[in-house]
């Protein structure tokens, strides 16, 4: 996909976006709400006609060659797309009939823990069951490539892990996965590559580890929590130059820069002098969350 542009009236949702996805990998498209994630995916699925640029999916143009593309891809929409009175198993078995070599629907139902949902109308399924049925519909036709739009939104912890394992198995079995998410741990855990999208552009595209390393050059940090309002100026005077100390949100302290054992000792001595116990103290690399916030800004929008 090169130079993709998508406008809705005067608003430009996708603004010259470039992205390439390797076969057999999991790519996470990560971005704040309204960054253009869903618009980008919908251009790949053939729902939206791009206003500029070129989109090729499995070598095909999703708009003009959709008839050849659709049998080869699986799509999970962000919400529903399923009639409220249709029964879960009925919907899955029906969708399976539209494909030449569908998966065994009973096995898929069992795998996704939907056995108890069998005859329940869609509207009476729990949010998690609805999401899992939607995922099942995306994979039942044995596609080469699946697009999952926020596949774990609204799932509890167990269901989220079950979904992650399923997505990992998809990759293991040779399916290419493109998913959107705004969950950083999901991207970090699952994705081979992460594309961070903001205001309609890819602002970074790398492996999770690569993103953390490149945007901070191996910089590490000490994090701890303590009573809010400690005077960080007195801490900085005891530390080597070039380090930063910050309290955000109140009570959560981060000391970033070239962290040596001496710096750690200085921080703990400073705490001891104030008779403060640093809770949950850890020394580590910048997380994907730090990188994400640096790239997309901290402002709410």
């Amino acid at each position: 996909m090169t130079g993709l542009v998508k406008r809705y009236g005067a608003k430009t949702a996708v603004d010259g976006l470039n992205l390439q996805v390797e076969t057999g990998t999991i790519t996470a498209v990560l971005g704040p709400n309204g960054a253009g994630k869903t618009s980008t995916i919908e251009c790949c699925e053939g729902y939206r006609k791009p206003d500029g640029g070129t989109v090729r999916v499995l070598g095909l143009d999703p708009v003009t060659q959709g008839d050849r593309l659709r049998p080869r891809i699986g799509v999970m929409l962000q919400s529903g797309g399923i009639y409220p009175t249709v029964r879960a198993v009925e919907m899955l078995k029906h969708t399976a009939k539209l494909y030449a070599n569908p998966l065994d629907t009973d096995g898929l139902i069992e795998r996704l823990g939907l056995g108890s949902a069998g005859k329940t109308p869609f509207r009476r399924l729990s949010g998690g069951q609805q999401q899992r049925l939607s995922l099942a519909l995306a994979v039942v036709g044995r596609p080469e490539l699946v697009f999952l739009d926020e596949p774990t939104a609204g799932l509890d912890v167990q269901a989220r892990h079950a979904t992650w394992e399923l997505i990992e198995q998809l990759r293991h079995d040779g399916v290419t996965v493109v998913l959107t998410t705004h969950l950083l741990d999901e991207a970090e855990r699952l994705a081979d590559t992460v594309a961070i999208v903001d205001t309609g552009k890819v602002v970074a595209h790398d492996t999770p580890a690569g993103l953390s390393a490149a945007n901070g050059a191996g910089e590490t940090a000490i994090r701890f929590t303590a009573p809010p309002g400690l005077d960080l100026e007195t801490l900085l005077t005891t530390l080597p130059a070039g380090l930063t100390a910050l309290e955000q949100p109140p009570g959560a302290y981060t000391v970033a820069g070239d962290i040596t054992p001496g710096v750690l000792a200085a921080v703990t001595s400073w705490c001891a002098a104030k008779d403060v116990m640093p809770q949950g103290l850890n020394v580590g690399r910048r997380t994907l969350e730090d990188v994400f916030l640096d790239l997309t800004g901290r402002d709410l929008r």
Binding site: P71, K97, Y99, A100, N101, E144, D173, G174, V175
Partner: peptide
Amino acid sequence: FTPAPGAA
């Protein structure tokens, strides 16, 4: 999940 795509 080995891909075997195709329409009926």
